[in-house]
Amino acid sequence: MATKTARVETITGSSHMPDDTEAAAGSGEPGASPRRVRIPVASVRADAPQFQIAAKNPRRAEIVAGSGFLMAAVGFAGFGAAYWQNYSNFWLAITFSVGFGGLGYGMVIWGKYLMPRGPFSESRHSLAPTQAQREVFIEDFASRGKVAVERRGFLVKALGLASGILGVVLAFPFIRSLGPLPGKTLRQTAWRRGSYLVDITGRRIKTGDLEVGGFTTVFPPDDIGGAYSQTMLIRVDTPPASGYLTPPPQFAKQRATWAPQGYIAFSKVCTHAGCPVGLYQELTKKMLCPCHQSLFDVTDAAIPIFGPAPRPLPQLPLYIDDDGYFRAQDGYDEPVGPGYWERGND
């Protein structure tokens, strides 16, 4: 304890040292209160240039600043009138700006030309305490803590347990309950075997509805307008003799019958960031994503040929039923839309 007292004394003794500003001037009598410790102001002449205002002709500056305020008055009055008369946004905004502009102009002129132009300075001291001050603080903190906390290990553990449980429990209302788990929703869409292709009004699409070189956005009947089941149905061409558009070699077998009578359907959800790929360039037979300009080749299984999209658009297998309506042979055979961690290779 003795050492500690001694140290405190040292601190007390040195506590004047950071306050050395005025003391450096040598005028502060010991014992005077800090507020009274100041150097005489004799060194500053009353007519020092710093105290002069910048305007040589204050009257004139006053008129200029005042006219700014008058302009503000006119502007604000105009704003009131414009509001009352329900004028257009332009008049409301312009009167408002004239008001604030005038106010600002006047205030700045006032501050800049009618107040002491300086420059003045204030002194600055390092905020860092001395090493001794720091040590005392740490010593105090640690020794009190030793008494209060360290011997009460049980309390500390119990407190930790309670707050730990609180933290875990809070995670449920503030995180877990915010939304459902993804489950399978990212993997499958509303497209099923036999789903009709309907447009946004619910009308079933049949052969001959689209012109050659036309497209329309289709949905399954139970998810009209769905963000993930939106699909582009494109009539690319008049079909070859086989009746089906020929898929690229790597899909020759799998997708041989997916595009009957020159119609082909791709997911409208971009595999990059999920935007609707609604731009169909008819002559070049490419689909372009409006958000980040990924370009998909419709005649080549919608493989991205340009831009950031990493994967082709999934293709919806189509067939035409006996009544001439388009239907899905099955749902998409891979997740539509952008990638995510669990997606893997499928």
Binding site: F100, G101, L103, G104, Y105, G111, K112
Partner: peptide
């Protein structure tokens, strides 16, 4: 004075 004026100018 200057900064208040400047605030008004920003609003303007």
């Amino acid at each position: 004075a200057k900064t208040t004026g400047f605030m008004f100018l920003t609003v303007a």
